[in-house]
Design a protein around this nucleic acid. Structure first.
Lengths: 102, 102
DNA sequence: CCATCATATTGACAATCATCAATGTATCGT
DNA sequence: ACGATACATTGATGATTGTCAATATGATGG
């Protein structure tokens, strides 16, 4: 996963509603109507958010009859999580090295 | 750290330039001019990005004479990292439970 | 076929954003 | 005091965003 991909996922997560959706999907796949029940947004807005989450690869959807089943794309989420995880603060000693400007 | 705070940090990271800046700061604090040297943006744009990173608490700055020393706020970054880390995919068994709609 | 339900799309609006040129504000070295 | 350097602010512009009402699509059940 590269910087651009990470920034796209972060953009998708830059709305509290979408973070909430991702969290809801960690309990297993759900249809849109279920998600809608648990949130304070209208149906078109949910559809808009789901599209944003699908576009960055975090969520997949499968249509089964009348319902659309959304699920978290584990591979994509794990890759993102690992990327964030890999960014570690400089150790205190390192930080005290200071700026080359001085 | 709550959902709103996380979404604000994600918004700050929704630009590849700012992810780059965070990564550069993991090597220790740097002044604006150093950051500028390593990126393809103008100085006002860098200033704009640094403000965005400071506003969400990811970066702190200290003015020392002529230079502004920017550093990653380890506490904030770690809290964010832990939050992302805490969101785990449903296990396969769990996912197969399926949607209550069916 | 018709009514109903689940979801997507369209169109609109106000709000926010990334970017830059121009300008302002410190601070340093001389 | 002066010129140079580091950085912030302002103002402008084109692009993107979140939201909803209205409408369309598509599947299900009678």
């Amino acid at each position: 996963m590269d910087t651009n991909q990470v920034s796209l996922i972060c953009k998708a997560l830059s709305d509290p509603n979408r973070i909430r959706i991702v969290q809801l999907l960690t309990y297993g796949e759900q249809c849109g109507c279920e998600l809608l029940d648990q949130m304070q947004i209208t149906q078109p807005t949910l559809s808009h958010h789901m599209k944003a989450l699908e576009d960055c690869g975090l969520v997949s959807s499968v249509k089964k009859g009348k319902w659309n089943h959304y699920s978290l794309n584990c591979n994509q989420w794990t890759a993102f999580r690992d990327y964030i995880e890999s960014i570690r603060c400089a150790s205190e000693e390192k930080a005290e090295g200071g700026c080359r400007c001085s």
